[in-house]
Nucleic acid binder design. Sequence first.
DNA 1: CCGGGCAATATTGCATGCAGTTTCTATATT
DNA 2: AATATAGAAACTGCATGCAATATTGCCCGG
Lengths: 219, 219
Amino acid sequence: MTSSNKQTQTDKLAAEIGDAILSGVLTPGTRLDEHRLAEQYAVSRTPVREAIRSLAATGLVELRPRRSAVVAEITPAQLEIMFVAMGELEATCARLSAMSMTPIERRRLQNQHERMGALVESDDVAGFIEANLTFHGLIYAGSHNGILADMAVGLRRRLGPYRRAQFRSPGRLPRSQAEHDRIMQAIVSGDAATAHAAMLNHVSLVEDTFIGLTATRAA
Amino acid sequence: MTSSNKQTQTDKLAAEIGDAILSGVLTPGTRLDEHRLAEQYAVSRTPVREAIRSLAATGLVELRPRRSAVVAEITPAQLEIMFVAMGELEATCARLSAMSMTPIERRRLQNQHERMGALVESDDVAGFIEANLTFHGLIYAGSHNGILADMAVGLRRRLGPYRRAQFRSPGRLPRSQAEHDRIMQAIVSGDAATAHAAMLNHVSLVEDTFIGLTATRAA
DNA sequence: CCGGGCAATATTGCATGCAGTTTCTATATT
DNA sequence: AATATAGAAACTGCATGCAATATTGCCCGG
């Protein structure tokens, strides 16, 4: 009883096509030909159509009646807006976390932060990146608000391809760790306003990195 | 060339079924039988299926593989979370508005607020409710962030059925107007932190009204 | 009288086919 | 040579049909 057999073809297709878009296999502007996709995944057009419609709801593809669906284009302006939105959502989650995390959750966040300190010492970039996801994930969860957390997770996922290089610049790891320290301290001590401000500051700096990235890509 | 003919059946169905859910015609827990819906709207099952999948992505219906889709249940806990999320989004939009509204937008917000003052004087509840939507809409738009604005609009739409009675309690109109005044002043003067706090306070009070409402419904 | 198992029914998931529209191409005209 | 136009090919939107799975009702045993 494989787990992949439990969900429908449509769901599997939506996941696969979505991953293909997020991983860059399907680039923005690419037409999603139903026939071609059906043939490619060895199914009929029906589940392909339904999968495309699901993806359209998430904003990954654009649906134009009577014309082919296309992979959604992201303009630099749109990217900017998405980064701002994500920053605000992260900050909001940090604020709520400061107010409503349980003692266990606060402890867990603190532990995670300390663990990341060791990764900074050993300059383990890959390990830090993964631990960083966990750190931010703990804050999403700590908000105790699934809706805001889902929004943040969705945006982070969507922005993933544009954030790849963010920890490669020298000195970024210790700086991130210092910013995390402020955030973590504020959350653990229940200081909502500081948690909000510190997180906003943190993600704004990340955003700066992204702007450099897009400039590179646009050149 | 009727405008209704331009969009596909699927889109029309998604809109109609969505409205049916939001307006309470289809109550939470109702099974969405594809045959029945197809017959009811005089189309085949295919567009119905696609419409349901669209609605599932918006959270209006819950999709369970191999079982009927059902209108999503909203538990009181879920409602609470949605109201909190919406409050945070509103407050964030107010914050961003204070930072990035154009002079014209600030002026427009001020005008709208003053217009609402007259409605309070004449105790025009219906007029105030509509103007209130515009007021908040101006703040969404003023954030200059379509993503956050869309999230806020979507949540407001979703919560609509649970907010109906909020302005009926005596003295609510003048109180709302006073709260709006603080928000408007902060935004116009560019005081982001105060705008955030004032909006959060404002919507929290609205939430209080909602809690009374659910208590009534639950009894 | 009540609960479990089995058959009948109903319903979903997917494939396929057809009609209408869009898009591409090639030809003709300026 | 460039553009407009007509025809053809391709693609989407929708309907229908079939197989697989869930649900319901019924019968039997305890």
